[in-house]
């Protein structure tokens, strides 16, 4: 079981490294969107500190969304998805591997970049830590929930827009508690309650979402 997940992750990581353009474009999107806000609203530290949690989290969410359509589309096009569906293991486990690989190439780099970008918003050291930690446990949930949408819109014409309409509402709770945690840290309250809820969502997103995703994939293959 672990071997299978490891095999999927190593294959997907190798593929991601062979076409770095996709990976880098989502990251640059994140950097640019976040950097536009201080330029647009002006250099008032008070205002920027207030904006920071929401801006960083919304940008992270949109950057994740950018990379979602290709989660299954390539495998679907070249026939690999059929082979995965016919593998003698549960398809849900294979999806779990793909979700983890997606997080490693999209969520993890966002998490590592966010504190650096947070400096533009005059966030305190503690708030930067909370920001990084909230993204660390929040982005896996984004990958997991997004996988359901990616599977449901597989093979649909104009699936990208539909995917956003489908997935963005489901991201709202993650956004509220993710940005809420950073907000709490900025105004000096404890972020622990927000982070606990975010952790629960992460576990739900990563370990439960693969099963409906697998069911949606089987429908798409029929």
């Amino acid at each position: 079981m672990l071997n299978l997940i490891r095999a999927i992750i190593s294959r997907d990581l190798r593929l991601a490294l062979r076409r770095r353009a996709d990976l880098v474009s989502a990251l640059f999107f994140f950097i640019i969107v976040v950097s536009l806000f201080p330029l647009g609203v002006g250099p008032e530290p008070e205002l920027l500190r207030k904006l920071a949690p929401g801006v960083l989290w919304v940008a992270a969410l949109l950057a994740t969304l950018l990379s979602l359509p290709r989660l299954f589309a390539d495998d679907h096009r070249d026939g690999t998805l059929e082979q995965l569906a016919l593998a003698p293991q549960p398809l849900g486990l294979i999806v779990l591997g793909k979700v983890l690989a997606h997080w490693l190439v999209s969520g993890l780099p966002l998490t590592l970049l966010a504190p650096v970008l947070g400096i533009q918003f005059d966030l305190s050291g503690e708030a930067l830590w909370v920001l990084a930690f909230s993204l660390l446990i929040g982005t896996p949930a984004l990958s997991g929930i997004g996988a359901i949408g990616a599977a449901l819109t597989l093979g649909v014409r104009g699936g990208g827009v539909l995917l956003s309409l489908l997935v963005l509402p489901l991201y709202i709770p993650v956004l509220i508690f993710g940005a809420g945690a950073v907000d709490a840290a900025v105004i000096g309250l404890g972020a622990q309650a927000h982070l606990s809820l975010l952790g629960a969502m992460m576990l739900g997103g990563v370990f439960f979402a693969p099963w409906p995703t697998a069911a949606a994939l089987r429908i798409a293959l029929e």
Binding site: N3, L4, A7, I8, R11, R14, L15, R18, R19, R77, D78, G79, T80, E82, Q83, L84, L86, A87, P88, Q89, I94
Partner: peptide
């Protein structure tokens, strides 16, 4: 099963493709 599509990855080499598909098929 071997379908219409080759189920190989264009970015990988033939050797990597063969090893990866064997691993995924357990």
């Amino acid at each position: 099963f071997l379908g219409h599509h080759n189920a190989i990855k264009e970015e990988l080499t033939p050797l990597e493709n063969l090893l990866a598909s064997a691993k995924l098929a357990d």
